[in-house]
Design a binder for these strands. Sequence first.
DNA 1: GTCTATAGAAGGATAGAC
DNA 2: GTCTATCCTTCTATAGAC
Lengths: 202, 202
Amino acid sequence: MVAKDRQTEEIIFEAATEEFIHKGMDGARMQEIADRAGINKALLHYYYRSKEKLFNAVFEKLSGQIFKKFAPVLDDNLSFEEKIRFFYREHLEILRKNPRLPAFILNEMNRNPEWMKKLILKIDIPKVWERLESLHKEDFERYHITRDNFPQLMTSIVALSVFPFAARGIFSTILESMGYDFDDYIEKRKIYAADFVINALR
Amino acid sequence: MVAKDRQTEEIIFEAATEEFIHKGMDGARMQEIADRAGINKALLHYYYRSKEKLFNAVFEKLSGQIFKKFAPVLDDNLSFEEKIRFFYREHLEILRKNPRLPAFILNEMNRNPEWMKKLILKIDIPKVWERLESLHKEDFERYHITRDNFPQLMTSIVALSVFPFAARGIFSTILESMGYDFDDYIEKRKIYAADFVINALR
DNA sequence: GTCTATAGAAGGATAGAC
DNA sequence: GTCTATCCTTCTATAGAC
């Protein structure tokens, strides 16, 4: 029965992920999760004691997913330009496959700021700056990237890939009204955003 | 008593705005709105028949606020560069005064896509493109702005100002861990973002 | 482990007095 | 117009049979 247990737990987890990502913690309903999973409410509580705990499990998994993908940027021995191109290619692709992730994360972080603070502070941000600065000393000098304007640059880079998904409801409507398609737009954006940033820097 | 009525209705509206902007439609509580307004729940229903209607009133007002400010960009006889600088100066200032607005709007649009679609489609987007294209023919040629990459550019411009607020919970934590302040960051961003875009274009 | 049935709490809405 | 009291629905959570 161990195999069965595992399976049910996973089915519940996936159903919960769907529901939470669509409706958020406040809008999600245990009944709906049970329906999606093809079981009944009581079983949800058997595996995860409460809605809160179930939500936490889902959130932990999803938020991990989004941050994990930033790591290669610190390691690979690519030039700074190549890293920017690499970032948009990979990151936009992940988001294309999980288009609701950004809106979900931003939502829930808004709902529970304290809780998120802990998550962010696991990363030693000043260390990240030092590491990048030493890795790309010449590039940073050439592009006038300093400790002071580093946050401006980083938030700009992230904004260009994440925001279209956070505002997908608006943007895809606008794109369609001009006769374009959101997925095409994202595909082209892998190049456009990289060029945009690199041009902006020089 | 007319003056009193008006006053109460406004007090309720403001209390509701606070509550909805913090918790969203799903998370907001009528009791909490009543408490904030210093009245009781029954009175909420007297003025606004339901939570739904009260929310709609608030949302209509707030969403209007955000879109209204895009208008001058079409009219003023500034150069394209000047418009970009103007946009970031004005728009970031509005957002600085209403930092929760972006997250709120994005949230609720995610919750009710249909409803938002109607709002967006009031704007004749292809007309906006035509208008800007004819206003800035030489600039658009010089900067290689075409109908096809126009959405890429526009979404990028908006992303750079709106996203820091949408992700404020994350960004302000990161900034603080480096010893910087969110409001300073926004103040500098009025210039940084404008330079960023203008450099990116040429 | 999984189900049915139901407890128990919360929250939106309304009746009716003043 | 404003309040108190209460209804009614919805939702989370648990008890208990199988």
